[in-house]
Design a protein around this nucleic acid. Structure first.
Length: 194
DNA sequence: GCAAGGATATCG
DNA sequence: GATATCCTTGCA
């Protein structure tokens, strides 16, 4: 029985070298090698020097592809998640908090993993997880299909934080969101696609 | 609105 | 070997 369980409520798809927003745009490098391997493996990278982001490798072996997990709705193990998030914030926010003398704002349970960096902190995911088989029964990190009774309506939007990639990569609707979830990232949901 | 933070890809 | 850049976050 895993100590932490959550429902994935927000993802983004990233392609191969054609996709200017994908890490695979530079071709196969040491960092992105796993993106070119068999699907179902984890690809974890560090962004902005402090946040880990979890991806699931997709596509045919030999071709790059990944799905970034952007938000998870906690279902079990909330206390463990909370301690993980608190620990990550101690590392990142020491200076700012020392200046303000204030305790960090409390996070409601449903927001603990609302964001790619936060879900990694909540689940204790870092780059050492890269290569883990997310489909294997005994992996430390697993993704399983939800029961039919828990299926949710999903909408599509453009991806977040990829303006640098330019047209059309900053507008392709490759972000999939469970709009009804309180655990999605960002201040609020963009307008639904027409 | 913006700084923090470190690995990475790219250049010289 | 140096440096611009980045699939973010939390505080001002």
């Amino acid at each position: 029985m895993p100590d932490r369980v959550g429902r994935i409520v927000e993802v983004e798809a990233y392609g191969d070298g054609e996709d200017r927003a994908s890490h695979a745009r530079a071709g196969r490098t040491q960092r992105t090698a796993v993106m070119f391997g068999p699907s179902g493996r984890a690809y974890v990278y560090l962004v902005y020097g402090m946040h880990n982001c979890l991806n699931v490798v997709t596509g045919v072996d030999g071709h790059a592809g990944a799905v970034l997990i952007r938000a998870v709705e906690p279902l079990a193990g909330v206390e463990v998640m909370r301690s993980g998030v608190a620990a990550a914030r101690r590392l990142g926010g020491m200076r700012a908090r020392a200046a303000s003398q204030r305790a960090p704002a409390a996070q409601p349970d449903e927001r603990l993993a609302a964001g790619p960096g936060r879900l990694c902190a909540a689940f204790g995911i870092d780059r050492s997880m890269t290569g883990v088989d997310l489909c294997a029964p005994h992996s430390p990190l697993r993704i399983e299909p939800a029961p039919a009774s828990e299926l949710r309506t999903v909408i599509r939007t453009p991806r977040i934080g990829v303006a640098y990639a330019g047209h059309p990569w900053d507008t392709v609707p490759w972000r999939l969101v469970v709009a009804s979830s309180p655990s999605i990232s960002g201040p609020r949901l963009p307008s639904e696609p027409g």
